[in-house]
Design a protein around this nucleic acid. Structure first.
Length: 436
DNA sequence: TTTTAGTCAATAAC
DNA sequence: GTTATTGACTAAAA
């Protein structure tokens, strides 16, 4: 129904299924093409019917915060409620004040854990996202100012959800319903004498657009081996943006498809970048300072932990990174435009101080990073006081696995290397010499 | 056309 | 069973 969900494809198919709705939404891997009848919409309806779409239900729970000017919102000012305020979620997103994505995700994680609610359920029901996306989002939220409108939507939804005093209740209900539906299906399939293996929700819509006989045409997932990854990383370190020729070579040397190599570079760049966002926050003394010592999200959200230079380097390193426009870790920083983008993002600037503000998401619109904090649901405190990170600078954080250690070392070395090159580069006029 | 952002979904890890 | 990781894909921006 809501137009803003159109692009979301069949994500909510699960939900529908959970409710025993037969209708399956085409969702082939290539099915990213928007489903014509906006699967989500119906899903949303169904969700609404049950738990009430948080985005709407809230309208009945919250005094509509009249202020569609959202942008003005003071710390702690709840977002206006879509539905009630006559705003679509998209509009809300557009006019939403800067949100503290870290605080939000922290709080969400907390609530989910405390109530034993899974990411899948939460994602499908509240955000219209799959479990993996939710996990990612919760673990590595990007700072608000670096998010596109679309990227902000889940955070707005999360905030609305958190604002809803009955959010947990509703989700619990949903959970129960899902369970019930599942049992029902199971029962009926048993009594029908056939186990609908693939027929269980999920599998049929995954390949929904294919006829049953074609199901096995599913493309097997490529899993890169450690050596391959290693080689790719090395290549990346030398050239984060390899030429087509290089890609070809890599592909043939590694015996991979060029598209795989291309994808790998895309993904790697993007993920490195994201890790850096978090490091920024941490280095900045970021959001909430870690009361939760263990806040899984910022708990170094692994970025801090395993992946970043922080691990092995002193804070000095972090500072250095900052000074350099951050993002130095990994060659990613190699590309100047990247660095620019980074330091410039959000319209604010590289002045470390400012950076701190904005990146931490603490700054209210145009505020002194002071405290605006947009303390969502009183999160501000939590966030500024406690959440995360910096304190947990994983310098000592136990690596989760050898891979992390490895990475850490590598990145630390890499960082030094890059800094060195940057320093050198800085003394050169000719950018062409900046090539890494 | 290339790159990025956002996401899905398979599968690995816990 | 849940969460994390990651290759692949789409859409949009540059």
């Amino acid at each position: 129904m809501q137009p803003w969900l159109n692009g979301d494809q069949g994500q909510n198919a699960h939900i529908q299924q959970a409710q025993n709705q037969a209708e399956s939404t085409p969702k082939t891997s290539a099915s990213c093409s928007p489903a014509p009848e906006s699967p989500l919409s119906s899903a949303e309806e169904s969700v609404n019917g049950l738990t009430g779409d948080p985005l709407i239900s809230q309208s009945s729970l919250k005094p509509p915060s009249d202020d569609p000017s959202g942008g003005e919102s003071q710390p702690g000012t709840p977002l206006p409620v879509p539905g009630h305020s006559g705003l679509s979620i998209q509009e809300m997103v557009a006019m939403s004040p800067e949100l503290d994505t870290y605080a939000i995700t922290k709080k969400v994680k907390e609530v989910l854990t405390d109530n034993n609610l899974g990411q899948r359920l939460f994602g499908e029901t509240i955000l219209g996202l799959t479990q993996g996306s939710v996990s990612d989002l919760l673990a590595r939220p990007k700072p608000w100012h670096k998010l596109s409108l679309k990227g902000r939507e889940p955070f707005v939804r999360m905030q609305l959800w958190l604002q809803d005093p009955h959010s947990v209740e509703k989700l619990m209900d949903m959970k129960r319903l899902e369970k019930k539906a599942y049992m029902k299906r199971r029962l009926s399939s048993l009594s029908d004498g056939h186990l609908v293996d693939g027929g269980l929700p999920g599998s049929d819509y995954v390949q929904g657009s294919q006829s049953p006989g074609q199901q096995q045409l599913k493309k097997p997932r490529v899993v890169l081996g450690p050596e391959e990854k290693e080689a790719l990383k090395k290549a990346y370190q030398q050239k984060p943006y390899p030429s087509p020729k290089t890609i070809e070579e890599l592909a043939s040397q590694l015996n991979l498809k060029t598209s795989t190599v291309i994808n790998w570079f895309h993904n790697y760049r993007s993920r490195i970048r994201r890790e850096l966002f978090i490091e920024e926050i941490q280095a900045a003394g970021g959001v909430g300072t870690g009361s939760e010592g263990g806040s899984p999200s910022l708990r170094g959200s692994k970025s801090g932990e395993g992946d970043s230079c922080d691990g092995t380097e002193s804070e000095g390193t972090a500072e250095t990174r900052h000074g350099l426009g951050i993002g130095m870790e990994d060659p990613r920083g190699c590309k100047d435009h990247d660095m620019e983008a980074e330091s410039e993002a959000g319209g604010s600037n590289n002045s470390p101080a400012q950076l701190d503000c904005t990146t931490s998401g603490l700054a209210g619109p145009g505020s002194s990073c002071g405290q605006s904090g947009l303390g969502l649901f009183g999160l501000t405190d939590a966030s500024s006081g406690g959440s995360a990170s910096s304190t947990i600078l994983p310098a000592s954080g136990p690596a989760r696995n050898p891979r992390d250690n490895n990475l850490r070392k590598k990145k630390a070395a890499n960082l030094n290397n890059i800094i060195h090159r940057l320093e050198k580069a800085a003394s050169k006029e000719d950018p062409s010499e900046w090539e890494f």
